[in-house]
Design a protein around this nucleic acid. Sequence first.
DNA 1: CATAAGAAACATGCTTGACTGTTTGCAAAA
DNA 2: TTTTGCAAACAGTCAAGCATGTTTCTTATG
Lengths: 218, 218
Amino acid sequence: MSGTGKRRSQKERSAETSTRLMNATIDLLHDRGLARTTTPEIARQAGVSRGALTHHFTTREAIISVSVADMLSKTTRDLHRFAEDFIARGGSSDEIVDYIWQMMDDRLFYVTMEYLPEARHNPDFRADLIPTVRDFHAGLDAIWTALAARTGVDPDHTRIVMNATMCLVRGMISQTVLRPNDPAYYQEMLAFWKQQVRQQFPIEAASAQDSRRKAGTR
Amino acid sequence: MSGTGKRRSQKERSAETSTRLMNATIDLLHDRGLARTTTPEIARQAGVSRGALTHHFTTREAIISVSVADMLSKTTRDLHRFAEDFIARGGSSDEIVDYIWQMMDDRLFYVTMEYLPEARHNPDFRADLIPTVRDFHAGLDAIWTALAARTGVDPDHTRIVMNATMCLVRGMISQTVLRPNDPAYYQEMLAFWKQQVRQQFPIEAASAQDSRRKAGTR
DNA sequence: CATAAGAAACATGCTTGACTGTTTGCAAAA
DNA sequence: TTTTGCAAACAGTCAAGCATGTTTCTTATG
């Protein structure tokens, strides 16, 4: 695939196998659930032997934990990129809500729903995750803090709105499980929420001229 | 416990064993998670033999499905009782938010988080649950519809606020897994949300004299 | 009302299958 | 040649489902 030639260094081989295994793990978590994400299944999905898996990851819990942390840190990188861009051009609160929804709906929270119960009952697993989750929230903070500074809104209040937004979106994605195939329902709720958030940042007309939206809302 | 060698009818025996098994199942789901809710463990927790379990429930999936449905329908009954009372005395929107939070935080959504991933990947299991969930939402509707009628707010808009409230609370409970031991955080967010909801039902100061008990729902 | 037949509730043990962690074997890179 | 990356076989565990045995209740009948 991406191999520049036939000869690859050990590091290259190792890195590619690890990556394949981690990607396979996330794919399986998303597509088939944690219970069905077994080590033989991961190896099959990654196209390597189970021996290769045990060579790179000592235990099932380890590969899952590492894969999830990897996914989260990638998402955090994206988040920081978005934050930079958002700050540079002075984006709207609507955009933030849309971005968060897209991000969470694009596998992130579905995968989260898979490991969250395990994290609740397994202290080691939970301890592994918490630092990564903290980084992720720092990325979120960067965005909302910028919005707060620009609109002169109390940062503490902004943080509440931010967290409420995250919770709302989490709950919405949860609901898709038992209420699927109803995009209009979720778009309507998002529209309502965007309006609520707008009310929290009233002076936003400052940079109203560049209200070009990338993500079309309904 | 209660029956010390007393002669009980078959139906009584059967019913008690079933109940014990279903309660044990919910307890285990909450305390140890779906993966650890095995049939031997359920039997042990219920204080009956595994044979008794297989006698009453053909398969593991069955006992879990039935137990969850039972829990949901109990919650729905409570909800209807609350609705009746709420309508009778013309309660406030704050009360609804508090009630929902209490209800969800009191095991309901923790247990839900356990089976939701399974429901996502298992169509039979999901199909079993959907009708019960629909009943539950009907109970919710009863409350909010009463509030809408009293305050003269558009029912469709009210439904959006209701659903947003449910989603918010779901997301909040999800967050408790990786952000535990911070009740102030959640109370602050609830306070914010109660204020938002209040704004949606502005005329609420009116007294509760014109609330009729019978004519409301159904 | 006594009791025996039968049904329902419950208990115990066995079989199968699958998964996890480990060890041994082997080829390619260093 | 040594080390590293990977493959394949192995051993231990445990749950799920099933089948057969045992107790408790119900009821039909004399």
